[in-house]
C-alpha cells in the first residue's frame, strides 16, 4: 500500500468509525475521558502501523478491547466511588411523570448498571452489535466463531433485560 493510499484509507476509516468506536468503548467502560483516550490511542497505533490490517474495523475493536482490559481495574475502582449517584435522586413526593428528568436519568442509570452487571464478553457483544458491527467482525474482535455470535447475542440480551428490569422495575 502506498503512503498516499494508506493516508486516504486511514482518513476514511477515521471518519467512518471513530464516533461509533467511541460509543462502543464508552458503553463498555462508562468513562468518557477514558473512552476518548482509548479511541485516540487506537488510531495512533493504526497510523504508526502504516498498513491497513485485513479487517480494519475488527482490528480497531481488538486494540480498544486490549486497552480497555488494561484500564479495567481503574474503571471498576472509579465506578465504586460514584455508585451512590442514583440514590441521590429525589425520593417520595408526587408520582413521576413520563418526561420527568429525574425518571429519565434513573432509567439511563439503570441501563448503565445493568450493563455493568453483565460479563465483559456479554457487554462487548451487545454494544458491538448495537453499533452496527457485523457478526464476522464481532467474531474476529472477540475471538469467537461466527456461528456462535447469534446464540451469544440472544443470551447476552436476556441477561441484560433481566438485570435492567430488576434495577428499574417493570411497574413504572
Amino acid at each position: 500500500m502506498s503512503p498516499e493510499s494508506f493516508d486516504d484509507a486511514f482518513h476514511a476509516l477515521f471518519v467512518e468509525r471513530s464516533a461509533s468506536l467511541y460509543r462502543y468503548v464508552h458503553g463498555v467502560s462508562g468513562d468518557p475521558a477514558l473512552s476518548e483516550d482509548i479511541v485516540q490511542e487506537c488510531f495512533v497505533k493504526l497510523h504508526r502501523r502504516r498498513a491497513m490490517p485485513d479487517d480494519p474495523r475488527a482490528w480497531l475493536v481488538t486494540v480498544a478491547n486490549n486497552l480497555l482490559r488494561d484500564a479495567q481495574r481503574r474503571v471498576v475502582r472509579r465506578r465504586r466511588l460514584t455508585s451512590a449517584w442514583s440514590t441521590d435522586l429525589p425520593l417520595g413526593g408526587a408520582a413521576p411523570q413520563p418526561d420527568d428528568p429525574a425518571l429519565a436519568a434513573e432509567r439511563i442509570e439503570s441501563v448503565r448498571r445493568a450493563l455493568d452487571k453483565l460479563s465483559l464478553r456479554d457487554r462487548q457483544l451487545l454494544l458491538l452489535r448495537h453499533q452496527g458491527y457485523r457478526y464476522q467482525e464481532i467474531a474476529t474482535a472477540l475471538e469467537l466463531t461466527r456461528s456462535s455470535v447469534g446464540t451469544m447475542l440472544v443470551r447476552a440480551g436476556e441477561a441484560f433485560r433481566k438485570a435492567y428490569h430488576e434495577l428499574f422495575g417493570t411497574s413504572r
Binding site: H26, E36, H130
Partner: peptide, 11 residues
Amino acid sequence: LALLPTAAPDL
C-alpha cells in the same frame, strides 16, 4: 441501549 449517551467528542 439507545438511552446511553451518543454524543462523541470532537476527535
